[in-house]
Design a protein around this nucleic acid. Structure first.
Lengths: 211, 211
DNA sequence: CGCGATATTGACCGACCGGTCAGTCGATGC
DNA sequence: GCATCGACTGACCGGTCGGTCAATATCGCG
């Protein structure tokens, strides 16, 4: 047995108990939801006793909130908006691809948030809007708005609507892949890049002939 | 006490027990999900004993499946695609508005399906694709494809992608209203018609200036 | 009326839930 | 050596879960 500094835990390997509990809780909450993920299961996966979980977190709900908080602050959730150079078309393509890749990479966190919003309704919706998504959404809208003032964007387009469409298309792709996959006409479920590319192409040029 | 025909039930008023159980189960499953909706609560809301629920449905899961089946076959879920007259623009506008209105009107069913897909994953995704959404999606794609052959639609556009975008935008609006509502830049959360209108406008003409 | 079938019920079961509690263990400071 | 403290544990609590069962109420039918 290797000697970690002060060998604080004897049950399972790796990091300290609190981190293992948080990791196990994140997995189980994301897989099964709040109710279906039992404290017994979380403790077992973390390699500690259930009582120890309650020693570190005063209740199941506080553990859940802690998981949510740390999950939302993980690196990778902050979207690279690509404020930098390039035409609007290039930047949008870049953003859409990066955004969709983020969602797919942190699938657990995405499912966690999706579940939370579904179960906790409007009240949680406000919290998520203000504390998690608000800043990034506002930044995206601002970028689009300045692009519109510089003439890169049509006058009649509402920047907030365009931002909603960009994000919503990715979110819908994420959570409906398993349905879309079985439609014979759909060929992009396994290549998110091509989905992003087609999305931005339609948004840029529209669907009417003769641009 | 009024004399209904043959007065089959003495507990609660209205339709027979089975229908009341199905209605109560639909409500509770949609509100709370499969696990959180207890058979006790369903029986209580239906005005019967829990044992009676198990008399009519052999298990909680079979009751759930029955609810899903009847819910998906309810009138109003079959989208009016507006095969009829009018330009492509008019028909798309019509379809998008009707589709979004359908989702919002049958909110319980929409939440039910959303929950089911989230909890039962890929396996249920296949069932939903084949038995519930497949026909309507294929019809929408077919309409778009014929429109493309008649030159109403740009060549480079993938009809399946456009259909996904049309449906996905509405679904995302439905399930993210409570978040979007709290973004100061967003003004369309209370007027789905304007959302649909802006959506179709962007899809038709794109976002670049000078069409 | 009586009789079989069906609808309905309250009492009950084992399993599991979130949460508590008394107490053990090992490190630290004096 | 010894008191103290946080990490940790197994046993246990009241309560709820899905599901069962024997008994009763009500029905359609001859």
């Amino acid at each position: 047995m290797p000697l970690a500094k002060s060998t604080p835990n004897l049950s399972a390997s790796g990091p300290h108990a609190v981190e293992r509990i948080l990791a196990a809780a994140k997995d189980l909450f994301a897989e099964s939801g709040f109710n279906a993920a039992s404290m017994n299961a979380i403790a077992e996966r973390a390699g500690v006793s259930k009582a120890n979980v309650f020693h570190h977190f005063k209740s199941k709900n506080s553990l859940y909130l802690e998981v949510l908080k740390t999950a939302c602050n993980e690196p990778g959730q902050i979207d690279q908006l690509g404020n930098g150079s390039g035409t609007l078309a290039e930047r949008l393509r870049e953003f859409s691809q990066a955004h969709l890749a983020n969602i797919l990479r942190d699938e657990k966190i995405s499912r966690l948030i999706q579940r939370d919003l579904l179960e906790n309704g409007p009240q949680r919706g406000k919290e998520l809007a203000e504390q998690v998504f608000g800043q990034n959404f506002a930044r995206l809208v601002e970028i689009l708005r300045t692009g519109q003032k510089k003439g890169e964007l049509r006058k009649g387009v509402d920047p907030a609507m365009l931002a909603t469409l960009l994000i919503g298309a990715d979110v819908f792709f994420f959570q409906s892949r398993e349905v879309l996959r079985h439609f014979p006409d759909v060929h992009f479920t396994d290549t998110p890049e091509s989905y992003s590319a087609m999305l931005v192409d339609i948004l840029l040029h529209g669907i009417l002939p003769q641009p």
